[in-house]
Design a protein around this nucleic acid. Structure first.
Length: 512
DNA sequence: CTTAAGAGTCATCTGTCGTACCTTCAGCTTACACATT
């Protein structure tokens, strides 16, 4: 079975003559049945690493993806490229459609779903009946970044993999420190997983870090930078309010097309703004971390941070969206000493204090065993005076100990006491971990030497020599940025190339 | 000796927070069939 020539198969199914960096190695290993953790830089075509194997393997391939929009995009893309047996299971489907797909699940060779969907009994019942010979986790850093508190179903993946017959696992991501890689392997219970890691340092990006004293100064600086030259720019904020506010203020100061984007907006508005930015109908987007995953725009020239994120991993992901075309781009970080409070509040908001665990568990006990009607998550977190994420975490831990949601009532006081201690211990470690990550982020801001080296050293042993000016500590200033932008691309072209573009709209191109 | 101005200290108050999935249902919109003028 392994005798065929992979390059021939690549051409036959996708029409490409050559693999891109890392693809062939990963596919080879996957086809030989090995578990692989692939860390490939953005824009290399990670999805091909499972799309080609799914064509070559006889059974089904399951792909876990964090965002519905990502799944829908990929399915659409594959369908228009002529791959018919692709489907995604998600909450946007109506009940009839969902039932029909579930009943004929064996007809699909590539099945996309969310980690939450895997916890659905009916879905799992149907999956178990299939022969699954590849289990893929796309954007695998979510396991480590979201799994512990925010989306705990990400920590339940190993159990699901076991249930569907322990197929080979392929985990893919663009950014993962060795620490995160280890966490991913641990959570998947696959310590022997093969790591295929490629460098992620951006040789076409210059870095600038500037201390400011106030909002007004930040605004003034952003205005200067934007006015210097019109170019696709993202501005990252840690709060929805500030994203909206600065977006409005910039509109009065800069003659460019500016909009904001965050998770609190209506679905349609989000889609519209994203599409406009993608199509060069917007110059500047003021956004929170909601904007990013699956954004594949090649000509983003500047990423400005009005606030800094809670960890370097997030920062790297955010700047990773610029300069995918390989042309020069820059990152500008603006910070004010007071900015430290915001990320600190985020940590508090997702982690319960260890000394509060005992009280919380007592209340849970009372509620679960004395309440007649079952409370939903929203009511529970309100009743316990916890944030949604804090309750998520506690709930997951109690489920793991089988103290809730596992049938018969357990009134074993000793067991509850033990669990209290265990949760306290986990929380103490999470507090230490998150505080350390934030500390690393802050010390990067103040690092007196080369910012580039300091940034990438935790991710890879050697940092390559940049093709552009290095960083503000190596003499780079935002004003020096090379920006030879052709007037907005693709807007005015002759009818032949426009027709060609329309004709090829559905054509397959591998993305991340 | 009294009083006003200014400086320093303490207590109180104000401000305010991101990331996604799922389920289920109420309420709304849209398309369409049918009856009436």
């Amino acid at each position: 079975m392994r005798n065929f020539n992979l390059k021939e198969k690549l051409y036959e199914h996708f029409g490409y003559l050559q693999f891109r960096q890392g693809q062939e190695e990963i596919i080879q290993q996957v086809l030989e049945g090995r578990d692989v953790l692939g860390i490939l830089p953005t824009g290399v075509g990670k999805s091909l690493c499972f799309q080609l194997p799914s064509k070559l393997l006889s059974g089904s391939t399951v792909v876990v993806s964090p965002l519905i929009s990502l799944m829908i995009d990929q399915v659409k893309q594959m369908k228009s490229a002529g791959f018919k047996s692709v489907v995604s299971l998600n909450s946007f489907m109506d009940h009839r459609e969902k039932r029909v797909v579930l009943e004929h699940l064996d007809q699909y060779s590539l099945i996309y779903l969310s980690p939450e969907m895997l916890q659905n009994e009916l879905v799992m019942y149907q999956l178990i009946k299939l022969h699954i010979d590849l289990f893929v986790i796309d954007e695998a850093h979510c396991i480590s970044q979201w799994g512990h508190e925010f989306r705990t179903d990400y920590l339940k993946l190993s159990r699901s993999i076991e249930q569907v017959g322990n197929p080979p696992v392929l985990a893919l991501s663009a950014t993962a420190t060795p620490e995160v890689q280890t966490d991913i392997k641990q959570q998947l219970v696959r310590p022997e997983m093969l790591s295929v890691v490629y460098p992620m340092d951006k040789v076409n990006m210059s870095f600038a870090v500037e201390e400011t004293s106030s909002h007004e100064e930040k605004l003034e600086r952003i205005t200067q930078v934007l006015s210097h030259k019109k170019a696709p720019t993202m501005i990252y904020f840690s709060s929805r309010m500030w994203a909206e506010r600065v977006s409005e203020e910039l509109k009065t100061k800069v003659d460019q097309r500016i909009a904001f984007y965050h998770g609190g907006m209506e679905q349609m508005d989000r889609l519209l703004v994203q599409q406009q930015f993608m199509n060069d109908q917007l110059d500047v987007i003021c956004c929170t971390s909601a904007f990013g995953m699956g954004v594949d725009k090649s000509n983003i020239r500047r990423v400005i941070h009005y606030h800094f994120p809670t960890e370097l991993e997030s920062f790297i992901q955010e700047i990773g969206r610029a300069g995918r075309d390989g042309k020069p781009c820059a990152s500008l970080m603006l910070y004010t000493p007071g900015d430290y409070h915001l990320p600190q509040m985020f940590i508090q908001n997702e982690l319960v204090k260890p000394e509060d665990v005992e009280g919380v568990l007592h209340s849970v006990y009372d509620i679960v065993y004395k309440q007649e009607t079952e409370l939903n998550d929203e009511e529970m977190s309100e009743e316990l005076k916890l944030s949604e994420t804090q309750w998520n975490f506690i709930k997951y831990q109690l489920e793991q100990e089988k103290l809730i949601n596992h049938g018969p009532v357990i009134r074993d006081k000793h067991k509850w006491g033990q669990t209290t201690e265990k949760i306290q211990w986990i929380l103490e470690n999470r507090w230490k971990y998150k505080s350390r990550k934030l500390q690393e982020m802050v010390s990067w801001l103040h690092h007196p030497d080369c910012k580039r080296k300091k940034l990438y050293t935790p991710f890879q042993p050697d940092t390559r020599t940049p093709e552009v000016a290095c960083c503000s500590n190596c003499g780079f200033r935002m004003e020096d940025m090379e920006l030879d932008i052709e007037p907005y691309s693709a807007t005015f072209t002759d009818w032949k190339s426009r027709l060609e573009k329309i004709f090829h709209q559905g054509a397959y191109h591998a993305t991340d």
